[in-house]
Design a protein around this nucleic acid. Structure first.
Length: 176
DNA sequence: ATCGTTACGGTTGAA
DNA sequence: CTTTCAACCGTAACG
């Protein structure tokens, strides 16, 4: 199928909009919403989508009001319904490896997975702390919030790093 | 008018 | 350290 290329995307409006933001290259979709190509929608938007749906707002209205494509609203709502999470899937990383070599790798991997440092420190903590009833059933909101705040820290750290990189660029001499 | 699905160009991050 | 590459992203368009 011949689909239009990105270069010819917005010929009639006149503005092939680009929006520069602290965290990357923003674009504007047909509904006037801002998004970053290749990256998940911001968490607060995802929250709003789910929240509105929970209040009985129809997906098409959510799409128009939040200026998010209906395909995306559909996907996020679908995922929420089957996983109970509003978070995007895990991006990046590696999986590959196959054949005979993979089996050895898998065994090592399993060993690592079963004996992470964390489990050792948990055992130590439990033994000495006397708090043995700590193991958690997945408590939904609590876990989400924890991940969220971790993410926030991460993105802040990244933004800062990139700003420093830009500023540093001005006075930086040739790297070693 | 709605909404499920998917080609596309994109970013990410463990190996 | 750099490179590879399969995972996911949202939009736009089709059905």
């Amino acid at each position: 199928m011949m689909r239009p290329t990105l270069a010819h995307n917005y010929p009639r409006t006149g503005f092939p909009l680009e929006v520069s933001s602290p965290l990357g290259q923003g674009r504007v979709n047909q509904l006037g919403g801002v998004f970053i190509n290749g990256r998940p929608l911001p968490n607060h938007i995802r929250h709003q989508i789910v929240e509105m749906a929970l209040h009985g707002v129809r997906p098409c209205v959510i799409s128009r009001q939040l200026r998010v494509s209906h395909g995306c609203v559909s996907k996020i709502l679908c995922r929420y319904q089957e996983t109970g999470s509003l978070r995007p899937g895990a991006i990046g990383g590696s999986k590959s490896k196959q054949g005979a070599a993979a089996e050895g790798e898998t065994r090592i991997e399993e060993y690592k997975r079963d004996n992470p440092e964390g489990s050792i420190s948990r055992i130590v903590r439990c033994t000495f702390g006397g708090k043995l009833e700590e193991e958690d059933e997945e408590e939904e909101e609590e876990e989400e919030e924890e991940v969220e705040s971790k993410e926030l820290e991460e993105s802040e750290r990244r933004a800062k790093h990139s700003i420093e990189g830009i500023l540093g660029d001005r006075c930086k001499r040739a790297s070693p």
